[in-house]
Design a protein around this nucleic acid. Structure first.
Lengths: 196, 196, 196, 196
DNA sequence: AATGAATGAGTTTTCATTCAT
DNA sequence: GATGAATGAAAACTCATTCAT
């Protein structure tokens, strides 16, 4: 059965299987064998391509980041004004797809991993930095630079906080009310002045 | 030399040891033996008292919640007006002690556990509910009821989001700026009207 | 079945089992499980007591060294003059027990291990140093110091070389002829002068 | 781009790579993949040519013997008298090249393998026999036959013993002192009589 | 009450070997 | 001739849990 050029196919299959297994378990405590079986390959092959369990997880995290980045770009495509773009970025974070159990699990585990794994931390840093830049870039058309940074920081934290609560069923608001909360905060801070 | 009445002492020692080990590891992946050794007892005794590893962890989580509740009550003791009390509740979440590595680990793991363990979820729910009630109770003196709930929801999410970012070094602001952000949000929302 | 004070008993049983298994295989390629089974315990216990396979081997080597040291001391007990003692030391190295297959295997593997394992090298060094000191001490009554060291070096190498050839069936001489060869060398070098 | 007549080239490359890897590891515990990679071919090809890992090792051992035989012949080329030839044979064993790590490893592993592998034993036997014959042949011009055999046996063992000690850093003498020791032994035994 | 001896299932990881291409 | 994809068995090591003492 061995064919040429299988590596990228196998890697992708293993990453997807890892995300699915982690999501199903809600934990990093899944065996490489299970992941490999779900991907339809032997555990040996998983190690052959990734070297270790940790690397499979990091690849999975990278994949999830990539999916999120793609989602943001898609939302941005139909946004024309800076304000529209800010709303689009916010909407991407609350897209129903982002609340699929395996994505939620991945994000929560991500946070735990970020404490120790430098690579996970780096990935987390990429995520927060990108979100921040995206927000700041658009805010700068609407308010002064210092203000833009503070607002972006607050928005980032608010989004993360609401996401986690929503994901764990601890949010009293529905999806639209939740996004409304963020938009409302944005409205207020922008109307407060700090003109360019 | 087993003595009578040792049970509560042993249990407390084991819980504290578990929290310390989890904090040191940044994971739930700590062995019962290590916990027991740190508590100065045998692993057999740990099982004798708790029955299983899982139970040790749940007891640890309960303990951490208790500590947090105590901290909130302490902060509240020196607050007289509703607004002071709101500030006190916020301050409790950003107390430097809350950022001790083992506390940070505990919270992050909490979120992961809450996905599957009903007991962990219940504890998390107790935390969010208590925080919400605390906030709502004091907000109700300052704005109408519906408003109070929305503001409390936003505050809760904002606090959690800022906490995680701060804990993982992804917060661009220092402790005072961070609390300032929350107070500022509170000021705005309260000044917006919705009088009682 | 667990009893107190089993540790030394288990350790000894595991060391003996390791020597037997290594001897039977003629290689270090024996599994911990096999060793443990022969010792009548679980593989987990072997790791519990020794930490790693390597440590089991090192303990085995130490044991073999100890046995050899004991043999030398026994031979020495019935020797009165320096020359008798030199003969006794030589005889110990060619004792039939030293040619048991598992002892031969252990020594040969020892040499291989000594290339990389600092601990094995140290053990080997202890063996050569002790043999050298033993020889030098007795030679010093019969010749001058510098001579004693050179003769001891030659004797050590000759003993080792003859041992290996004998052990591998590449020695054309029988046991007594072999020892005679060494004694003869000693006779010549001592008769050559270099008086004290 | 497979070319014709590559087989001997590949085989030689694999044997040399195997010796290098074994030397680097100090063990037979090297993977076929590593050997193949060092030889610049795939692991599949290594199996294609040799059939199994064991066969690669045996070919490597044969190669090392060949190299040693060549070295002896080279040393002998510039020797004219029997005594010169004896010295040349001794010198070959203590040639600095013989102490290259991979050669030392090979010899030590050889001894271990000789216990079980008939092929390794045969090779070892060829080595000792050849050395013995070489020595005896030249000794016969200088002493009687029986004497020649005994001296050759002693010399062989002395050389091996000194080689191992030198290789493992357990020799107190430098290279010239070491060879001097052997020459000295030869001098004495030849001067003792046993004339032809 | 408390210990530590003991197990054995489970997990990661490695690797020789095979085989389609 | 040559590759690299793929397997699967095997091994070291870990650890929660049990239990005699």
């Amino acid at each position: 059965m061995p064919k040429l050029g299988m590596e990228p196919i196998r890697r992708a299959a293993l990453v997807e299987a890892a995300i699915a297994e982690i999501g199903a378990a809600g934990t990093l405590d899944v065996t490489v064998s299970r992941i490999a079986r779900r991907a339809g390959v032997s555990s040996g092959l998983a190690h052959h391509y990734f070297g270790s369990k940790e690397q499979i997880f990091l690849a999975s995290m990278r994949h999830i980041q990539t999916l999120f980045g793609r989602r943001v770009r898609e939302e941005l495509r139909s946004a024309d004004t800076p304000r529209d773009r800010l709303n689009a970025i916010i909407a991407a974070s609350f897209d129903p797809d982002e609340f699929a159990p395996e994505i939620v699990s991945a994000w929560l585990i991500f946070y735990v991993q970020a404490q120790n794994s430098p690579e996970a931390r780096r990935l987390l840093h990429v995520y927060t930095t990108r979100l921040h830049s995206n927000l700041v870039f658009n805010l700068k058309s609407l308010t002064n630079d210092a203000n833009a940074h503070v607002i972006a920081s607050a928005l980032g934290a608010l989004i993360d906080g609401l996401y986690i609560r929503q994901a764990l069923g601890e949010n009293r608001l529905d999806r639209y009310q939740t996004m409304g909360l963020v938009w409302d905060y944005l409205d207020i801070k922008l109307s407060q002045g700090g003109e360019r």
